[in-house]
């Protein structure tokens, strides 16, 4: 299987270890992983701002970079959801690209979904000694319909005790540019999520989307909360880097 890996702009700039962890997992699952060098951002900030022309330009670029692969795998439900659900919508009046968008949409997967549903790999002999909770990021859950895959993968991590998180399906308050447009509402939502995480008696919050994790870790740091945050790919790939916001 030739897999085109879409690293996402946040992972590229803020946390490359998520990308390298994901590649390690994909290779262990038997995939040939290629990282097209022409990729930048999926265009979601433009789409969600209603800047449709900018979004269409970026969508065409992503389509050109990724159409040749058997699959496209993304370590983020929201960027994967953008490609799968919104590219065809954004390009509906662009004949040739609309068809390409539909064909790309069909082969685009969120990382954990791909590992479990396509590559059929659920055990990566990972070890992580911690009690953790898993936060379903909204796009993963409601745009990509990923609920069981990450839990199945985490169940096979030795030493990891997964605690049930109350309201795991409720938004953490990130929402891309929402987080900077309405910080006070975002704050309340983050605080509710952090309280639920603490009440679950977990010391580690695991998530599938770096955006949500940067927002939650940033809020926890501001409040002085003693919680750690990691992307699921890092946990599954035994990544040795410090957790998000822990410093080096």
């Amino acid at each position: 299987m030739r897999v085109g890996f879409f690293v996402t702009c946040l992972v590229d700039t803020m946390r490359p270890s998520v990308g390298f962890s994901a590649i390690k997992l994909l290779e262990r699952a038997g995939c040939e992983v290629i990282v097209p060098p022409t990729q930048t951002c999926c265009g979601q900030p433009a789409w969600n701002s209603g800047a449709d022309a900018h979004c269409r330009d970026l969508a065409r670029k992503v389509i050109d970079s990724f159409l040749e692969f058997d699959y496209v795998v993304v370590p983020s439900g929201s960027c994967a959801g953008m490609i799968r659900n919104h590219y065809p919508e954004a390009l509906k009046d662009d004949g040739a690209y609309h068809l390409r968008a539909l064909s790309l949409a069909k082969k685009t997967y969120e990382l954990t979904q791909f590992l479990v549903e396509v590559a059929r790999a659920t055990d990566f002999s990972a070890k992580y000694n911690a009690s953790a909770c898993y936060h379903d990021s909204c796009s993963c859950l409601r745009e990509m319909f990923v609920r069981d895959a990450p839990r199945q993968l985490l169940a096979n991590v030795e030493g990891l005790e997964l605690k049930p998180l109350k309201d795991a399906d409720v938004c953490c308050g990130f929402g891309g540019l929402f987080s900077v447009k309405y910080p006070e509402i975002s704050e309340r939502m983050a605080d509710d999520k952090l309280s639920d995480a603490k009440n679950s008696e977990a010391s580690l919050v695991i998530g599938p989307d770096l955006g949500c994790l940067l927002h939650l870790a940033g809020r926890a740091a501001r409040r002085g909360e003693n919680l750690k945050f990691r992307h699921i790919a890092e946990v599954l790939a035994n990544c040795s880097q410090a957790s998000i916001g822990e410093g080096t």
Binding site: T13, R15, E187, H215, G218, R219, R222, Q241, G245
Partner: peptide
């Protein structure tokens, strides 16, 4: 962004 949260350090 910084009104209510910090930004975790990039790698």
């Amino acid at each position: 962004w910084f009104a209510i949260r910090d930004l975790p350090e990039p790698q």
